[in-house]
């Protein structure tokens, strides 16, 4: 196998929570509990999970927006999570991010031209105004935006148009790697298709690698090459997309797959008992999914399973696979 573009090794992220001064055990939110993954150049690597599973935190740790509490992040073999701002700058050019909410991620006082020029100016390699303007024309064409947009402010655009601008801003530094955090969740169905198509085209034309965070498995099915399923801060299954839909290994993956509504599907046919995702504040020992798992036995409640080969090229973290 080739050397991975991005590799995540044993990453943990803990957030201390507000506590009472008499409290002996300080509450700590364990957002990431030892995550390992390698992202290969050119692939669309998806991360799925429900709210609170740590998928967004992982994206932010990879981008260097959050510092991991433990573990390492490597980019093309260089450890980047410990770099200072100056040393990190070359990686900022190669790694870009698209956020979920295009209403919050664009500066409302900056017109589109300024928004797009800013990353180039921040990188500080003294591009001339003409070069910057040529670059802007290039990305605007790539996202299908008209030149009249350049002088307008974000509030003049619809959600789909704003997300195009966010994508243009991510593309303007010619990145190799893009973290896309739920880039279509805030958009309407017909607009979701437009933006997904745009991301697919950009990937082909620019040879991009995506780290695509989503809660929607049907998007993974359409868009992804490999997928990591996360639950309460850990990866429970990591697999090729085709394999995971045909032969899911982890009971949580099976639950997720059975719950997706489809046209003509059966997701709501059987009534289920109320399931609850345990809290990530001082999480239970053992397997985090044990409280909802039909296969859970005593060992699951005391020993946390680790990712292991589960056949078919897939990895899964489940004691039932032994």
């Amino acid at each position: 196998m080739n050397a991975p573009l991005v590799s995540v090794k044993g990453v943990e992220k803990r957030f201390p929570m507000p506590s009472h001064f008499l409290q002996l055990k300080k509450p700590v939110l364990h957002a990431l509990r030892g995550v390992d993954m390698n992202i290969q150049r050119g692939e669309a690597f998806c991360v799925v999970g429900e709210s609170g599973c740590g998928k967004t935190t992982l994206g932010r740790v990879i981008m260097g927006l959050l510092e991991p509490s433990a573990g390492e992040v490597h980019y093309e073999g260089t450890r980047i999570d410990t770099l200072g701002e100056g040393d990190r700058r070359p990686f900022r050019r190669k790694m870009q991010m698209i956020f979920q909410n295009p209403y919050a991620s664009l500066n409302p006082r900056m017109n589109v031209a300024k928004t797009l020029a800013e990353p180039l100016k921040m990188l500080g390699d003294g591009m001339s105004a003409a070069d910057i303007s040529a670059k802007i024309d290039d990305v605007m064409a790539a996202v299908g935006a008209s030149k009249e947009w350049l002088t307008r402010l974000p509030h003049e655009f619809s959600g789909g148009q704003r997300q195009r601008i966010s994508i243009a801003r991510a593309l303007i530094t010619d990145p190799d790697f893009i973290v896309a955090d739920e880039p279509i969740s805030a958009l309407d169905v017909s607009i979701q298709a437009q933006v997904l198509n745009l991301l697919s085209k950009a990937r082909q034309e620019r040879n991009l690698t995506y780290f695509f965070i989503t809660h929607d498995l049907s998007v993974v099915e359409h868009f992804g090459d490999r997928v990591a399923v996360m639950y309460l801060g850990s990866v429970v299954e990591l697999s090729d997309v085709a394999e995971i839909f045909e032969r899911p290994k982890h009971p949580y993956t099976r639950l997720l797959l059975s719950a997706i509504p489809r046209i003509g599907g059966q997701a709501f046919s059987a009534e289920r008992a109320p399931g609850e995702i345990p809290t990530a504040v001082n999480p239970p020992a053992g397997c985090a999914f044990a409280s909802r798992c039909p296969l859970a036995h005593d060992r699951c409640r005391v020993e946390m399973p680790v990712l292991r080969d589960a056949g078919g090229g897939a990895m899964a973290a489940c004691h039932a696979l032994d």
Binding site: A259, P261, A267, E271, R272, P274, G275
Partner: peptide, 15 residues
């Protein structure tokens, strides 16, 4: 709601 919870709630409403 999350997708697994959605399935629970919709099945409940149908029932």
């Amino acid at each position: 709601l999350d997708v697994t919870i959605q399935a629970e709630i919709m099945a409940l409403l149908i029932r």
